[in-house]
């Protein structure tokens, strides 16, 4: 894809467990373009977080990347040594976690944690001495200001527990952005937050994206968040991408029965008095999956042809979905 900052092809990440082999990410291809905000939607177990943990090289045992290529800004990340990968993490790609309280180190002050990232990655800093310390301090204050934390100078000395949930999420974003990464991976940045605070944090991410010209991969389960903040969206189900395209198209005219079902089952005031039609059943067990459409057991439009492997099909110029109903030929 043209102007893709991150391009992942046919990624497979597996977990070997006592109960069996779990293919958490099964042939996922995804591209994040420069300056865009890509939304990644899926329920728990869909593989949305594991996909990006793989990109960051953060998949822990018993998990491992089995195959696929991950190209970031022209470099193949899978070919990098752990040392080179560490240099990429934090400087070029940064990630924020869902739970800011456990993701921040409780024993270090906020200032120290921002400084840590700058120390590790920022080459523009003066080599050593008072000038370096001063530059780090200045940059830290600037970062806290950027994420909208007032009286940054005194706040730098405080510890994570002295901040509220929304503030902690901002601090984590500040740490992630300290080295002006080209890509921010935001893993459920607002799930733990209240709606009024959620709105603040999401707007903050959008503002900074515009200001710094970075790309954002926003992992979420909330289609509402995607609708309001993302340029493109990718829907994942049971380890596969089932639909991707411009947000307006995917939300406005979803092609995959799963996306359709998901949108139809969100309870909202507009549906008052009408019964909602939930998707019946549950996400299939990822152990020992048959090579068929993963959504088969829950799909209202399933037919025999769905029992064969289903590939992504074009549903529009930039809109693809993994369903045999697209394109008319049902064989």
């Amino acid at each position: 894809m043209k102007d893709a900052l991150l391009e992942v092809r046919d990624l497979r990440t597996v977990f070997e467990t006592r109960a069996g082999r779990i293919c958490a990410v099964d042939g996922v291809s995804v591209a994040v373009r420069r300056g865009e905000c890509l939304g990644i939607v899926g329920e728990s177990g869909s593989g949305k977080s594991v996909t990006f943990a793989s990109v960051m090289g953060l998949v822990k045992a018993p998990g491992r990347i089995e195959s696929g290529t991950i190209v970031f800004d022209g470099r193949d990340l899978r070919g990098l040594s752990p040392r080179q990968m560490r240099a990429v993490r934090g400087r070029d790609i940064a990630m924020t976690m869902q739970d800011a309280l456990t993701a921040l180190n409780p024993a270090l002050s906020v200032g120290e944690q921002i400084a840590e990232v700058l120390e590790a990655h920022d080459e523009t800093l003066p080599a050593r001495g008072a000038a370096r310390r001063k530059a780090i301090r200045k940059a830290s204050i600037e970062m806290l200001g950027l994420v909208g934390i007032p009286s940054a100078e005194t706040r730098l000395r405080q510890y994570p527990h002295e901040f509220s949930g929304g503030m902690r999420q901002r601090i984590m974003i500040a740490i992630a952005l300290a080295c002006r990464p080209k890509l921010l991976i935001a893993d459920e940045p607002t799930t733990a937050l209240d709606v009024t605070i959620q709105a603040q944090v999401l707007e903050l991410i959008s503002d900074i994206r515009a200001k710094l010209g970075m790309s954002v991969a926003l992992i979420t389960h909330d289609l509402g968040v995607v609708a309001e903040h993302c340029d493109r969206v990718m829907v994942m189900y049971a380890g596969q991408v089932v639909e991707e395209g411009p947000t307006t198209e995917v939300i406005g005219a979803p092609k995959h029965p799963y996306t359709q079902g998901l949108l139809a089952s969100i309870p909202r005031p507009a549906l008052r008095g009408q019964p909602i039609h939930p998707i019946e059943g549950q996400v299939p067990d990822l152990i020992g999956l048959a090579p068929q459409c993963r959504f088969y057991s829950r799909c209202t439009q399933r037919r025999e042809a769905c029992l064969a492997p289903v590939e992504m099909r074009a549903a529009g110029p930039a809109h693809n979905a993994r369903c045999i109903l697209i394109g008319g030929d049902e064989e």
């Binding site: 467990t17 109960a19 594991v50 998949v59 998990g63």
Partner: peptide, 10 residues
């Protein structure tokens, strides 16, 4: 990953 913990054998 929590994945492994969520799929206990029957």
């Amino acid at each position: 990953m929590s994945l492994a913990a969520e799929t206990p054998a029957a």
